[in-house]
């Protein structure tokens, strides 16, 4: 076997003879995907952004020089004149006399919280519906999917606004609203993927081996259908941050106006947009960077997990 030459495979090209199976260390599929991921520059940038975002959120009290609600510098503020960046206040002071930098730092916590909770709620409910439809098929599938279609027929943000308005102004209602919008997306995605996998030969093989239906669904169909869900998850996180900011901008977030939140900061900056445009740009930039991080990772994951790229 020593003379065996390892020839790299060319997708769609000639030698589909990638590696000699007996001459290679075992590797798990997940680890392989991770290895491909860290070799993608786009993914590395995305992961760095996310890392910064998460670290800032966790260590906000240590990083922020002041409390986000401390308005001790109100005396420095005059209508139409807000102190810009200085050594003491890196990003200046807002119209209510608070340190903008500290508010941005603390805002990361809020955004991450909203994003993660909304994603978790939406994904869990969506996945449950998707599994239900995808595993049982038949009338269960029809009923679930009609329900999902109805949810999907309402534009996302409008739907979120309606839900948030119904539940009243609170952080919880924002999170629920964003979650609800994402439920049908996850349900549809997973169900479609599962239906496709259910027709695969290996499922037929498992059936012919007498494997029980639930084992087939949970051990074969579901794991093989999950890749797009993971990708969708990261993209949803990005979207949830933007949506949360949007809802806050529309005044549908928590009732406490002093809570540091990027979307609300954007709303507040609206009033002083002509005199202090930077007050809108800082939170805007924060939102964009956080969302960008998750989007980059999501897109790279899509490629890394794609079996077509796997060798």
């Amino acid at each position: 076997m020593s003379v065996n030459e390892v020839v790299a495979g060319e997708p769609g090209g000639p030698a589909p003879a990638p590696t000699e199976a007996a001459a290679r260390p075992p590797s798990s599929l997940g680890r392989e995907a991770l290895r491909r991921l860290v070799r993608t520059p786009m993914a590395v940038v995305g992961m760095a952004l996310i890392a910064v975002f998460v670290l800032v959120a966790i260590f906000a009290p240590l990083i922020a020089p002041y409390s986000p609600t401390d308005n001790s510098w109100l005396d420095q503020v005059r209508p139409g004149q807000y102190p810009g960046p200085s050594a003491e206040h890196w990003l200046g002071i807002d119209p209510l006399g608070r340190d903008v930098f500290s508010r941005i730092i603390y805002g990361a916590r809020q955004s991450l919280l909203i994003g993660v909770v909304a994603l978790a709620l939406g994904a869990v409910a969506g996945i449950a519906l998707g599994v239900l439809a995808g595993a049982f098929g038949g009338w269960v599938d029809t009923v679930v999917m009609r329900f999902v279609d109805i949810m999907l027929s309402v534009p996302g943000l409008l739907f979120a606004i309606a839900v948030a308005a119904m539940l009243g102004q609170s952080l919880t209602s924002v999170m629920i609203a964003i979650a609800v919008v994402n439920v049908p997306i996850f349900a549809r995605l997973l169900r479609g993927e599962m239906l496709g996998q259910r027709g695969a030969d290996y499922v037929l093989a498992a059936r012919s081996l007498g494997i029980s239906r639930s084992a087939i669904v949970f051990r074969h169909v579901l794991p093989n259908s999950f890749t797009p869900v993971i990708v969708q998850g990261t993209l949803t996180l990005a979207l949830a941050i933007v949506e949360a900011a949007g809802l806050a901008f529309l005044g549908l977030s928590g009732s406490d106006p002093s809570a540091p939140e990027w979307g609300r900061m954007l709303t507040d900056a609206q009033e002083t947009l002509t005199s202090a445009p930077m007050l809108a740009i800082y939170p805007g930039l924060a939102i964009v960077l956080a969302a960008l991080g998750f989007t980059l990772v999501g897109e790279s994951l899509r490629e890394a997990l794609d079996p077509k790229f796997r060798r």
């Binding site: 076997m1 003379v3 065996n4 030459e5 020839v7 030698a15 003879a17 590696t19």
Partner: peptide, 27 residues
């Protein structure tokens, strides 16, 4: 064997690993 068991042509005959008639010179 399979077509994966091969040798680069500049080192010898690519079919050598699967060949029943192969001799040392083939490489």
């Amino acid at each position: 064997g399979s077509a994966r068991d091969t040798v680069a042509w500049d080192r010898g005959c690519a079919f050598q690993p699967r060949c029943a008639r192969a001799v040392a010179e083939c490489l």
